[in-house]
């Protein structure tokens, strides 16, 4: 009895989690003209891909307007590419830089090490909005607004969390291999790249994946620094698209098509790296 109720609760949670996404796809496949008639239909009466092709900028503006668009230029193909570039670049560079620092903090001996580490960890306490205001001023003064460097630079090299996480990890791996390598005369640099990094693939991928997901979701910073068409990422593109749509009746079919596009890449990530991602969510492993 209890067991059956428990399964029921799990299934209910699953439905509540997944159904809104189903509704997103269903709406994206509905012609704008049928939006009202199909508002409660579980499947569109005339399914169509026009909403996808028009938000991807694959049809002429006239056709897009005819299909319910506002007629404004919208190019989700470009925004998707920008998002991929933005989050991919940050994830790779940040993970490697933080791994180097984490390794130095865990293994190398030099004066000032623990003090510097303490200061970096203290920065975990500062909410992002506090540094966001002056960082915006800085990027503006450097004339980097609406450029890729302006977008990625503040998070490209580090986040305090990644440094902290990777240091904890490097502290937990046994020293034997490194000690053997030292006796063979391999220097610190060679040891890091040839021995430590290959040995630590798992945690590096974990932190890289988490970084990709978070930067994929970024909104406020790209909104301030990359609102121009060429540098727009998906989240900003969706926000602009929403603002362009008429007040009384938003272009829901187009918006949902754009929304689907913002889900697909991370969903692929989950399909291919799901086990790793799911297993990475583990606070108890963080000593």
């Amino acid at each position: 009895m209890l067991k059956r109720a428990s399964w029921l609760a799990l299934v209910a949670a699953l439905v509540v989690t997944v159904f809104p996404f189903y509704w997103m796809i269903r709406t994206a496949l509905t012609p704008a003209a049928d939006l009202f008639r199909d508002s409660t239909a579980l499947w569109p009466s005339n399914p169509t891909l026009i909403n996808f092709t028009r938000v991807l900028g694959l049809v002429s503006p006239e056709e897009a307007r005819a299909a319910g668009g506002s007629g404004a230029e919208i190019d989700f193909l470009l925004y998707t590419a920008n998002s991929l570039l933005y989050s991919g670049l940050i994830a790779v560079v940040q993970t490697l830089c933080c791994a180097m620092a984490g390794y130095a903090f865990a293994r190398l001996r030099f004066p000032g090490r623990d003090l510097v580490f303490g200061v970096i960890v203290a920065a975990l306490m500062v909410p992002p909005i506090f540094t966001l205001l002056p960082n915006f001023v800085l990027v503006k003064q450097l004339d980097l607004v609406n450029t890729l460097p302006g977008l990625v630079l503040p998070s490209l090299l580090m986040t305090p969390f990644a440094v902290f996480f990777l240091r904890q990890f490097f502290l937990s791996i046994p020293r034997d291999v490194e000690e053997a390598a030292t006796l063979e005369g391999i220097g610190r640099w060679g040891m890091f790249w040839r021995i430590v990094v290959p040995m630590s693939r798992g945690p590096l991928i974990t932190i890289g994946l988490t970084t990709i997901v978070w930067s994929w979701k970024d909104y406020l910073w790209p909104l301030l620094v990359g609102k121009a068409e060429e540098t727009r990422v998906l989240t900003v593109g969706l926000g602009v698209f929403l603002q362009q749509s008429p007040n009384r009746a938003p272009d829901w079919t187009g918006l949902m098509a754009g929304s689907v596009l913002s889900v697909v890449p991370v969903l692929l990530l989950l399909v291919f790296l799901g086990r790793r991602l799911v297993q990475s969510l583990n606070f108890s492993g963080m000593k």
Binding site: V213, W216, K217, Y219, L269
Partner: peptide
């Protein structure tokens, strides 16, 4: 899945 999706 919902955690992977932008808040926007």
């Amino acid at each position: 899945v919902p955690w992977l999706v932008p808040n926007v």
